[in-house]
Design a protein around this nucleic acid. Structure first.
Lengths: 125, 125
DNA sequence: CTTATATTTCGATAATTCTCGAAATATGGA
DNA sequence: TCCATATTTCGAGAATTATCGAAATATAAG
């Protein structure tokens, strides 16, 4: 992940349709969604969506696989992780209290985010 | 934080000069850096940088304060946190193992990120 | 008040990008 | 083979954006 990769990734997300697609796929998880279903879901023309999906895929934010006539897209969690990590690189410079709140609320109430609270039973999903 | 705010924030970061400014300020912490120093540091013309800083500020990613003749810019950690949280909203949908690695490496090796390892002594800053 | 430093605003040009219609490619079924 | 469905590629026009020179504003110092 260098500056060019990061700009490419951020530019891919910096557009209403593509951000909508990405967030939809983030919610879908590994199962993903067929291109046509995404188009219907977000009311985007098929060819326009195809361009957007290509940009997101090229940026390493989504993946695709073929299933019969459909092509299924899903979020690329690893690429996403790399982008976010690059953004916040060397953030806290000896002051953990600055960036700890950022970390703790990126995925609010999720995945054992409550690092300092200690109530692991609460995140029961 | 809605779709428009997020697109504004991502677009602000999706440009090489601005991404460089943001990452520089993230490393500077609350102390920040004067506009002129940023311009020299990144070799950007003063007026061009001013436009970029305005865009970053309008997106809620940096703040400014005056000190004498200089205007000091610093990263807006809270705005940044809101943007990242929006990006990953409803990410894990019942499968914490999917997004936990994202969370743990956004700020690698920092701020007690080692949620599941348990060796708190390692993050000794 | 005058001058110097620091930053921003203005106006214009060059480059990039979004969107869409039309056509092309790929897969599955009759 | 022929047709229908699913997605992508191509080409063009409209809109947005980056950058820069010049001028304007704001603060500090002599």
């Amino acid at each position: 992940m260098d500056m060019n990769d990061a700009v490419k990734g951020l530019a891919a997300l910096a557009q209403e349709s593509r951000l909508g697609v990405f967030r939809l796929l983030v919610r879908c998880g590994a199962e993903g969604m067929a291109a046509g279903d995404i188009a219907r879901h977000l009311d985007i023309a098929a060819n326009t969506l195809s361009t957007h999906l290509g940009i997101l895929a090229n940026a390493g934010l989504v993946q695709s696989r073929r299933e019969g006539r459909s092509i299924i897209y899903s979020a690329d969690y690893d690429g996403t992780r790399r982008l976010l990590a690059f953004l916040m690189e060397d953030c806290c410079q000896g002051r953990p209290e600055v960036c700890a709140p950022i970390l703790e609320s990126v995925l609010p109430g999720c995945c054992g985010t409550e690092t300092h609270g200690g109530n692991d039973e609460a995140s029961a999903h």
